[in-house]
Simulated assay, not measured.
Amino acid sequence: MKIEKVTVEDAEELLEIYAPYVENTAITFEYDVPSKDEFEERIKNISAKYPYIKAVHEGKIVGYAYAASFKDRRAYDWSVETTIYVKNNCKRMGIGKALYEVLEQELKDMGILNMNACIACPVQEGRYLNDDSIRFHDNMGFTEAGHFHNSGYKFGQWFDMIWMEKMIGEHNANPHEVIWQQNFKL
């Protein structure tokens, strides 16, 4: 397996991974699968400033991860929101861990200090949601930072969401400026 930078040409393959999450789960609160054009725009916008990476196994993309702006205010420059999706039939194979380890290193190299993840949280595990993402992030060193009740409505039911965080750098009185880059090491 190789970890590589995502390009807009990957949009269709990434959508094949993402679509089942939209259509069959509450992991994403998105109701409709984005069009290929919309997904290409998302890739362009995110990767212009942040790492957007993919895991490739035997020539096929089996997962992807990226960081994006946590909030659109200057004081939040050192914080990002992370996202990860792994192909449904490729879970529990170390793909997510490999992606997040590379993503974390890229973010550290930029000067990012906080990784944050917004995760749908089941009140009770069921058909549309379990706690796999929470356990994954916990295993990757994230801790719960906040729990919000009845935050998302999908498939005729309400779901909670939690924020989890991981501090990946030293917080001091004079942090170095974040290095916004388009040419990541990958």
Rank of each mutant, 00 (worst) to 15 (best):
V22P: 00
A48I: 01
T25Y: 11
F70D: 05
V56D: 13
I53G: 05
P20V: 00
Y31A: 08
D72W: 05
S79T: 04
K54E: 07
Y66A: 03
L15M: 13
A75P: 00
G59C: 09
S69L: 08
Y50C: 02
P20R: 00
T82P: 09
A75N: 02
K60Q: 15
Y31N: 10
R42M: 10
P51S: 02
E38T: 15
I53P: 15
E4D: 08
K2V: 03
Y76E: 06
Y64V: 12
M1C: 04
Y76L: 01
V80N: 00
I43R: 02
I17E: 03
F29H: 12
R42D: 12
D72A: 12
Y52F: 15
K49G: 05
R73K: 10
K2N: 10
W78Q: 07
E13S: 15
A55N: 09
K44Y: 07
V56M: 08
N24Q: 12
V80S: 00
E81Q: 12
E41S: 09
V8I: 06
A11P: 12
V56E: 13
V62F: 03
I43D: 08
I46P: 15
I84T: 12
E9P: 03
V33M: 14
I46Y: 14
N24I: 02
K71Y: 02
K54Q: 04
F29G: 06
Y50V: 08
E81K: 00
A67V: 12
Y21A: 02
T83A: 05
I3H: 10
T25K: 00
S79D: 05
G59I: 10
K2R: 07
K71Q: 10
P34Q: 14
E4F: 00
A65I: 10
D32H: 13
V62M: 10
E81A: 02
E23H: 01
K60V: 08
F39V: 10
Y76N: 00
I53E: 13
E4C: 06
E41C: 07
